[in-house]
Design a protein around this nucleic acid. Structure first.
Length: 977
RNA sequence: AGAUCUAUAGUUCAGUUGGUUAGAACAUACGCCUGAUAAGUGUAAGGUCGAUAGUUCAAGUCUAUCUAGAUCUACCA
């Protein structure tokens, strides 16, 4: 700077703001949260009237443990939906909820008992349930605070809990609808059963240990083929559970396995095979089986193939068939058919089926509709065989107490050996042995468990519901499938197929669990009646009403209090004629009923009891989407939701699952403490949630970078608008074209933003806004307008620019507020401070129709292309060190295209290119003029700007120094007054 | 083991009914500016479109197989 000219910097209108470049989000976010709580934002929004309601129904997380990143993703997405819908003019309600019942909590309490040396069985059920309730309550409070910290808005002080007394009442009432409409029935299925504890166990309560088991090869005689070769043969099966042999009902083979007929032609002394005996075996396993039967390869020969046609002809008899003293117990012909779970890698290639004691077999015969013929009730609760069973009645599969003398098999009872002896006696055994294998044991008693057919309660999926709500079909399945296609919008579309095929294929819904913490199946069965009898279940509205009333007042504990049965039945039926059911409802029934006690029954629910959206991870196709659909189809005839959005899972940076052992986890509170919740939210917004989402240190760093860029753009606007007033407000028609073009872009974007928000495409919306902010604003519009904003006095150009900045401010803050809830509030308060002020009370402003100007936009595409050529030409000189700043240049643009020429001559091209001057001509360009390959019709000849540098605006102009203020140009001198 | 889904620069994403040289942004490198300054701005480099085979005049796009990852089932006689 020359010594004699004054420093004009203070005379400029430089951006002025206290808005910090660095956000300091982790420290400052809690203050904004406190503010919102004080203002009561959520309730304040509810006071706005005349808005169309939008209901996002919250899928309840399970109330145990701290939040992980998946919870954060889910709730942030929900929050962005709620906030964007609200700001687009809806009344967007959000009632957060928690799932409180169920095994994991029960389990935690049991664990506490164990460490304190208490025994669960000695604790009163009601006391136990109270402890579970307390535990859930504690975690609800913790999770609520963790969710709030992420900036999630909602009715936090009055959420819904599945364990609220009212919820428990309604869950029971919903269950009783199934009771009354006849879809509830008692059936049975094999479950993991601990004979020692006489209880069913869940998969989570089972641990696998090595156990020694007997292993036997058993002969089943072939009969009734009419083929002498086959009829003389025996099918051999292998099992490690001899105790299931009395319950055998069938044998199955594999469709793709090659079988052969083998004849014994020699034998050692100790052997259960006789010479001439013929066995059908899988070829891959024949030598293995023969070895176990002590036959070496010289002692048997393969006679022929056994084809699938042969197998189809075969029928079998049980080895105990016709045994004296068996009273015909095993005399029925055994079923024999193909099944796809049979392999020829282990055993014999044939699987013995006792469908009461194995899942594969049970499912096979369930799907065949033959359960009644194959289900047995041979094993009692304590693991003993049925008292009246021939030979083995009362024998125990497992001992009730451990026998430490039997070191190898301390729990072994007397049933297996008795059965093996009898089989050997009737020539039913080919071989036996012992093996060590991994076997399920009870987590509590450490004793082995068995699969045991157990009575369970089911909801029939294919039975007409008979409730006059048949618009979508008569049965639950029909209604569900029809709803999926006719009623529900799926985001992404693939979710539809997933649920459809699951519901299409699913069996009846097992509603009962043998547990303590949940809502009981509130029903009674008639003593002496069979499950198939019409009056087996007590169906009485008066009884139901009593139950509901009691639950409303006392919660589901009422079911467990002393004298509950008499309380509910006295005076209606004779309590002594009925048995009270003590099973617990599947927790998916609880959460499947949330639509009833939240959407239908709460004042702030929805008008028609339906949700506009359910939004959960893809795992909920089998979970909440599924159970809610079934429950609702059973009770109200159709889906409870109009829309379903599913998101993927969170993975680490390499796309691998997160796990503590790999050390690749990202905890939400860590992100919040390091970067702030807004960064986590921005990560959600810029990710494609329809697939799995990756997160890790590098990705978060990238997100924080984007955030900073955006933050500075906002900061620039704040600074330039510092003293903006209504006097600046300029009509669009009085604005330069550049400003009109910005408004056009805003009109375009507004549509994109609204369509995107309505399609829940936050990624698309954010990307569009972010691109606009960096490409159109920061590097183009702002860059150009800095000159006018800084240097002009109160000119129409400056007023127009500031009008546009003000408009931009309102658009950008409201568009981004659903994502960057904290930062946009911070930006908003910078201009609109006040105790009651908040961007979150504002709607996205409407866009005046006149802003859209496609013709102008077309023209400006041309202009920007020409500009690119000019700036590129300057870049060459910059690299050559001819110039530094672009204001040192005054290039000549040779434009041959007449349209382009007229377009360029209609705008202040030098300003747009940030040069001090620019000559536009239609002359033929000199050969050395600069061109870009992809821009036709313009060539640029570089020239340095002539004159002195204005000490105020830094433009180089010929008239500098000839005005009132020394060292200034005409404009600046005027501005200085 | 089965069902479903995903795969494009270092990162996050575009890529129309198959049709020019696969596009942005961020990050990177090298510049410019020093009046958005722990900021702004320009230029460049960066891709066998997970792999292979096929259909086609033409494949990131359609088909098949494989690989990796994810979710849900099944983990057994």
């Amino acid at each position: 700077m020359c010594a004699e000219t004054p420093d004009y910097k203070d005379t400029l209108n430089l951006p002025k703001t206290d808005f910090p470049m660095r956000a300091g989000l982790p420290k400052r976010e809690p203050d904004w949260l406190a503010r919102w709580e004080k203002i009561g934002i959520y309730d304040r929004l509810r006071e706005k009237t005349g808005r169309t309601p939008f209901t996002l129904h919250d899928g309840p997380p399970y109330a145990n443990g701290h939040l992980h990143i998946g919870h954060a993703l889910n709730k942030i997405l929900k929050d962005m939906v709620v906030r964007s819908q609200q700001m687009m003019g809806k009344d967007a309600r959000y009632i957060p909820g928690w799932d409180c019942h169920g095994l994991p909590i029960e389990w935690k309490i049991e664990e506490q008992y164990r460490t304190n040396g208490k025994n669960k069985d000695e604790v009163n059920v009601v006391d136990f349930r109270q402890e579970c309730r307390k535990f859930a309550d504690g975690w609800v409070d913790i999770q609520r605070e963790e969710f709030k910290r992420l900036g999630i808005t909602g009715k936090w002080e009055n959420p819904y809990l599945t364990m609220d007394f009212r919820s428990e009442r309604i869950i029971a009432e919903e269950f009783m609808k199934f009771l009354m409409n006849g879809t509830l029935y008692q059936g049975s299925k094999p479950v993991m059963w601990s004979p020692v504890e006489k209880t069913a166990l869940a998969e989570a309560e089972v641990e696998y240990h090595n156990k020694e088991s007997f292993t036997i090869w058993v002969k089943f005689k072939v009969v009734g083929t009419g083929d002498a070769t086959l009829d003389s043969a025996k099918v051999v099966i292998w099992t490690t559970t001899p105790w299931t042999i009395p319950s055998n009902k069938a044998v199955v083979y594999g469709k793709d396995i090659s079988y052969g007929l083998y004849e014994v032609i020699g034998r050692p002394e100790e052997c259960w095979a006789t010479i001439g005996e013929r066995f059908i075996l899988a070829d891959n396993l024949a030598s293995d089986v023969m070895t176990k039967a002590r036959l070496d390869e010289t002692m048997y020969r393969r006679l022929c193939d056994i084809t699938q046609e042969d197998l189809e002809k075969i029928q079998l008899t049980h080895p105990l068939h016709g045994t004296e003293g068996a009273n015909g117990e095993w005399d029925d012909i055994r079923d024999f058919r193909a099944a796809d779970f049979v392999t020829d890698t282990e055993g014999t290639g044939f699987v013995h089926c006792a469908p009461s004691h194995g899942m594969d077999e049970f499912e096979l015969y369930r799907d065949l509709g033959m359960l009644e013929q194959v289900i047995t009730y041979n094993v009692m609760e304590d693991g003993t065989l049925r008292e009246d069973m021939p030979f083995f009645g009362g024998k125990a599969i497992l001992r009730s107490k451990i026998n430490k003398k039997n070191k190898n098999n301390p729990w072994e009872g007397d049933a297996n050996t008795a059965i093996m002896s009898k089989l050997a006696e009737v020539d039913g055994l080919l071989a036996r042995g012992v093996i060590k294998h991994s076997y399920p044991h009870s987590w509590r008693s450490k004793a082995p468990v068995i699969y045991r057919n157990t009575p369970q309660w089911f909801a029939a999926i294919d039975k007409p519901v008979n409730d006059q709500r048949d618009n979508y079909g008569k049965t639950i399945r029909e209604r569900a499938l029809r709803s999926i296609d006719d009623m529900v919008t799926w985001t992404p579309q693939t979710g539809r197929n997933r649920l459809y095929s699951m519901i299409e294929a699913r069996p009846d819904w097992v509603l009962s669990r043998q547990r303590a913490w949940g809502v009981p199946l509130t029903c009674f069965t008639k003593k002496g009646a069979l499950p198939t009898d019409d009056d087996f279940l007590l169906r009485n509205e008066e009884v139901n009403a009593r139950v509901a009333k009691a639950f409303e007042a006392e919660g589901a504990d009422a079911w467990y209090h002393e004298g509950a049965k008499e309380r509910f039945l006295d005076g209606i039926v004779d309590p002594d004629d009925y048995t009270q059911v003590f099973d617990i409802l599947d927790v998916w029934f609880d959460s499947g009923s949330t639509h009833a006690f939240v959407l239908r029954d709460r004042e702030d629910g929805s008008d028609d009891g339906m949700a506009d959206l359910y939004l959960e991870g893809t795992d909920q196709h089998r979970g909440w989407f599924h159970s809610s659909m079934l429950q609702s189809c059973g009770t109200r005839g159709h889906a409870p939701y109009r829309g379903v959005l599913t998101h993927g899972f969170t993975l680490d940076e390499k796309g691998m699952k997160m796990s503590k052992s790999l050390g690749n986890t990202v905890a939400p509170d860590e992100v919040v403490n390091q970067y702030g919740a807004d960064i986590l939210r921005l990560w959600v917004a810029q990710s494609d949630y329809t697939a799995d989402l990756r997160i890790g240190p590098e990705i978060l760093k990238g997100v924080a970078d984007s955030y900073r860029r955006l933050r500075n753009t906002m900061r620039f606007m704040l600074g330039s608008l510092a003293d903006y007033s209504q006097a600046d407000k300029t009509d669009i028609h009085d604005m330069p074209e550049l400003e009109q073009w910005v408004l056009h872009r805003l009109a375009e974007l507004d549509e994109k933003v609204r369509t995107g928000f309505n399609a829940y495409d936050f990624q698309g919306v954010f990307q569009a806004i972010f691109n606009f902010a960096t490409v159109d604003l920061s590097s183009f519009y702002f860059d150009i307008r800095k000159d006018v904003l800084y240097c002009d006095g109160d000119t129409p150009e400056r007023r127009a620019a500031r009008t546009v900045l003000d408009i931009l401010f309102h658009r950008l803050t409201t568009w981004l507020a659903p994502v960057l809830v904290f930062t946009m509030e911070e930006v908003w308060l910078e201009r609109y401070p006040g105790d009651e002020s908040s961007v979150h009370l504002t709607d996205i402003p409407n866009t005046p129709k006149g802003w859209r100007n496609d013709e102008l936009a077309q023209k400006w595409v041309q202009i920007r292309r020409a500009r690119r050529t000019i700036t590129a030409a300057l870049e060459v000189e910059r690299t050559a060190k001819t110039i530094g700043a672009s204001l040192e240049a005054a290039p000549i643009a040779y434009v041959s295209d007449p349209d382009l020429f007229s377009a360029l001559s209609s705008v202040p091209l030098a300003d747009l290119c940030i040069t001090s001057d620019l000559n536009l001509t239609q002359d033929t360009p000199p050969a050395e003029a600069f061109t870009l390959d992809d821009v036709k019709g313009i060539a640029v000849q570089f020239a340095k700007a002539e004159g002195e540098k204005c000490e105020r605006c830094w433009k180089i102009l010929p008239d500098v120094g000839t005005h009132a203020h020394p060292g200034t140009c005409n404009r600046c001198s005027d501005a200085l007054g």
